[in-house]
Every structure is written in C-alpha cells, then in structure tokens.
Nucleic acid binder design. Structure first.
Length: 477
RNA sequence: GUCCCGUUCGUCUAGUGGCUAGGACUCAGGAUUUUCAUUCCUGCAACAGGGGUUCAACUCCCCUACGGGAUACCA
C-alpha cells in the first residue's frame, strides 16, 4: 500500500469549464505539484441525458489554456484507466452487486412517477422528502418475481437507519450527521449507468486517490460515500470540501448572473496568469500580505491548511485590476501574441511588427483586458474623426499657426526622440507663441485624434513623420 | 420545512486570548505628468447580535439572527 498523494479533478462534461471547477482543478494541481504527488483527470460522463457534444474537448482545451497539466487522464493515459466513467460501467455494476450481496444495497422497482408522487405526498404532510424505503423491505421472493416479470429497477444504497456518522474534513474539521437524515441513494440508474455517488467512490478507490478535493455542495453526500468505503472495506480518502464561489448576491456562482466559463473570461481578454492568480485567492490565502503569484509560485506557497471555510464573491473588479497588472508586467512579445486575435477581428493591418509592439506597449499601460486593445490602438491604425468641438479647436488661428509651422519643420527631424521633439516644441513656442495646452492639445488632436493621450514623442515615433505630416495636412485650412 | 456548513471594511482577506484590528480591490483627496493613463502618497470603511468562560475576548462555548449548500434514476 503506497502512501503516495494522488488527487483528481472529476468534472462532468457539461460543455465548459466552470470557474468553480477551475479552482478545484487548480488546487488539485497545486497540491499534487507541491507534494510530488499525481494529478489525475477523470471525466464523469455517467449521465446520458446530459451528454453534450464536444464538451470534453472543450474542457481539455480550457485546462490546457490556463496551464494546468495533469499526469493521468484522457489523452495522456496512465495505469489506472480508462479515465472516462462511461467506459467503466461493468466495474460499477460489479461493485453494486457486491453491495447487494452484502445487504448494503437493494433493488428498487419504484418508477420515477411513483417517486415523484411519494415526494408530493410527503411534502403535503410536511414530512422530509426522502425515499420511504418500500423496496427495502421486499423479500427475496418478491424481488425475484419482479425481476422475472421484467420490471426495471435501480439499485439503492441501504444506509443505516439509526446512529451517527462522524467524519473529519481538512477544512471544516469534525462533521456529524444522523443516519436517519441520510437518504437511500440510487447507485445504479435504470439505464444501467451509475450515479455520481457509486462511480465516484469506486473510481477514487481504484485510482488510489488519497485526497478528495471538491466543492462544498458534496458535503452532505459524504456520509453515503463513507458508508460505501466501510462496506467495501476500503480506506477512505482525506476529505477537503471547498467553500463555494459566489455571485455578488452571495448565491452559488451561476451563469445567469454573468460569466462562469473559463473560456469566456479568456475570450474577454483576461490573461491565464491573471485568472489563475485571482481564482487561487478565492478560498485560499498565504499567511503574508502577498497577492501576486505565478503558477509556480503558487505551488511553492500552497497549503491545504490555509484554505478558507466561507464562500467568496467573485469580484470582477479585482480580476480586472490583477489582469491590468499582468498586462503591464509580462513581456511585450507575449502580450502581443495574446492580443493579436483581438486585432485580427477588427481587420487592421498589424503586419508591421515593430509598430505593433510599440502600440502594444502603449495599450497595455491603459487597458484592463486584451479586448480593449484595438479600441485603444485605433488612432494608430485608422483615419481620424473629429467631433464638432474638436473641429473648433482645430480651426483656431493659434492652432493653425502651429500646424503650419510643423508642416514646415517636422520633416527636418532626423530622429524622433524626446530631445528632438522637445526642441521642435520650443521652436514652435518661439515662432507662434503657443505653449501649454494651446500647443499640445491641437497637436495631439491633429495627429492622434484626441486632446488626451500619450506623449507626442510616442505618437510620432509610432506613426512616423510621414503619417503625421499627412494628418497635419488634412487639418490645415 | 428538514439536515449540514458558514459569518472581520461594499468585495477578497490577515488575525488562533492582551493589536491604535493589518493588507489588497473599489471609492475619495493629493503629488508627479503639457493632457489622459500609469506610478506614488493620504483617507473613508469591518470583528452580525446576545449570553457565558476568563484578569482579559475578533479569537473558546452556547443561543439567536442572517447567508449559503443539500434535500433527483444531475453532477
């Protein structure tokens, strides 16, 4: 028996990677890397009714985009495969049979309609809506008869009816449930597929999972899971139930209230570095005040002991701040590559790489997301348009004098740099009397399209003198 | 309804019996900048309430309130 640390991320392929799932996967990854353990990816595709075309591919792609590499799972294989639950159905059936043989599970012939009706009745009486256990009492003969008649059935777990189950969660410590509040969970559906509860327990054991890191929504199912471990005689894993990620109104983060898919955030121009860093801090925090971490640094710092108990609101404003930080600090070349798709959409010509990178360096200083880049860069790529108010400023005599002076002198500049442009600016003041805002605003407006913006040297450096003269010519009357 | 979990600034959080309750985001003000943005500085802002325990409670216990999760042949 090895004491190797093995964790798994076990998403059901619903079509996209939810950020809550992303965080679970991240913690799995961090814990595995931190401890030298293994990070397993297992696809929980046991619900045929919820099959979504391309969902797994999408999941894998999202994981790859944020850099969370797993050691075992789809596409990379491993010694404990297959890693798709839909390919392991015989395993679950065999284990369900064992449970039945051990009298820890039974066949239930109630139809979905009957169950719904039972629940309605219980509700009407103000009782708990739990399976009333009528098939639990079926004799062997009765069961055989129903089977012989071809009645379809499910297999239910036969949980204890009295007593208490106590277990320890690494985040919440001691947790206790009265068995009487635990339902006889369906383990095998009538279509022969297992439910999460059975498949999860069987696979976690068979795959040697040592630590189960999952969302808090599973906490109340844990007694059922532990019961199965006990019947099978297996050693249960350590439990780590993560607090939920919340909407601003504190409900469980949902699609209705905004983006929840990892790919959506990526598409909106958030960098993987920012998303990972931000999500890591939703439920975990180091003992220091430090908040900025690369993935590798998170691996160094991560510890299950510092996981939080309470849910955390996903604050998009802080994500934006963090994203703008990474936009400013990561290498220009990298940001340029990341920004390229957003420019491609607008159809502007970014083939001049030197110019493009200069523009990236300009945009990264003022954007919160990559998606904002094209708009910021617009003055460098497309023809200028002026508002009525701006047109008035262009018409002013002082402005016109400045433009004319520049048409004459700008071509004389050999090299565009702070010194040469400042010298020209000084000459302009001497020749026209324009200074301060009367000097800078018209000029910036004429060649950049806005009175606000970067320094003239930067604008001229990026556009080139020819382009500036062209624009100047257009505003001279 | 029932069961389970949780509760420090608006938000993310530090804090494990003695602190002027710290940091970050947001917001406000200021400095720098020809302007905008950046950057920097300053400020606003919290221990859910009530009982205990203790010389001493944000920290430990109980109750209440509030929030959330689970109550499926979904995960």
């Amino acid at each position: 028996m090895s004491s190797e640390i093995r964790v798994r991320f076990a998403p059901s392929p619903t079509g996209y990677l939810h950020v809550g799932g992303l965080r679970t996967a991240l913690y799995d990854y961090l814990y595995a890397r931190k401890t030298g353990g293994k990070f397993v990816l297992r696809i929980e595709d046991t619900d045929q009714a919820r099959y979504v075309e391309g969902a797994v591919e999408n999941l894998l792609k999202s994981l790859k985009m944020v850099g969370l590499e797993y050691d075992e799972g789809p596409e990379v294989g491993g010694d404990f495969g297959p890693y798709y639950q839909s390919q392991r159905t015989e395993l679950y059936l065999a284990h369900a049979r064992e449970l039945v043989d051990q009298d820890a599970a039974y066949r239930c012939f109630c139809t979905p309609e009957e169950l719904t009706q039972q629940r309605e009745e219980q509700k009407a009486l103000g009782l708990d809506t739990r399976y009333d256990g009528r098939c639990r009492k079926l004799t062997k003969e009765e069961t055989e008869t129903k089977l012989a008649n071809g009645n379809t059935f499910t297999i239910r777990l036969k949980v204890p009816r009295e007593g208490e189950i106590v277990f320890f969660d690494l985040v919440r410590d001691r947790i206790a449930f009265q068995w009487e509040t635990v339902d006889d969970q369906v383990l095998i559906k009538s279509d022969g597929f297992p439910t999460y509860h059975l498949a999860n327990v069987v696979d976690d054991h068979l795959m040697g999972i040592s630590h189960v890191i999952r969302g808090e929504e599973w906490l109340s199912s844990t007694p059922k899971h532990i019961f199965m471990y006990q019947i099978f005689g297996w050693k249960p894993p350590k439990w780590i139930h993560l607090p939920l990620i919340l909407n601003p109104d504190k409900s469980k983060l949902s699609k209705r209230q905004g983006d929840v898919a990892t790919e959506d955030f990526l598409k909106k121009g958030f960098l993987p570095e920012a998303l990972i860093n931000f999500i890591a801090l939703l439920g975990w925090h180091s003992a220091s005040d430090r908040e900025l971490y690369t993935l590798d640094e998170l691996v160094q710092e991560f510890s299950l002991k510092r996981l939080n108990k309470s849910g955390s609101v996903f604050d998009i404003e802080k994500l934006k701040w963090m994203n703008s930080h990474y936009l400013k600090t990561l290498e220009t070349g990298y940001i340029a590559i990341k920004a390229t798709p957003y420019f491609k959409e607008t159809g502007v010509d970014i083939s001049d790489r030197e110019k493009f990178e200069q523009i990236i360096d300009f945009a990264r200083e003022r954007a919160a997301t990559l998606a904002e880049f094209p708009e910021l860069a617009k003055p460098f790529y497309t023809e200028l348009e002026f508002s009525e108010e701006n047109n008035e400023l262009l018409e002013v005599e002082m402005s016109q004098n400045v433009f004319k002076f520049w048409m004459e002198k700008l071509p004389e500049i050999i090299e565009v740099n702070v010194a040469s442009i400042n010298a020209l600016l000084n000459q302009t003041t001497e020749a026209t009397g324009a200074k301060g805002k009367d000097l800078y605003f018209p000029l910036r407006l004429a060649i950049f399209g806005s009175i606000h913006g970067p320094e003239l040297t930067m604008i001229i450096g990026i556009l080139g003198i020819e382009k500036c003269l062209e624009r100047l010519k257009k505003v001279i009357r």
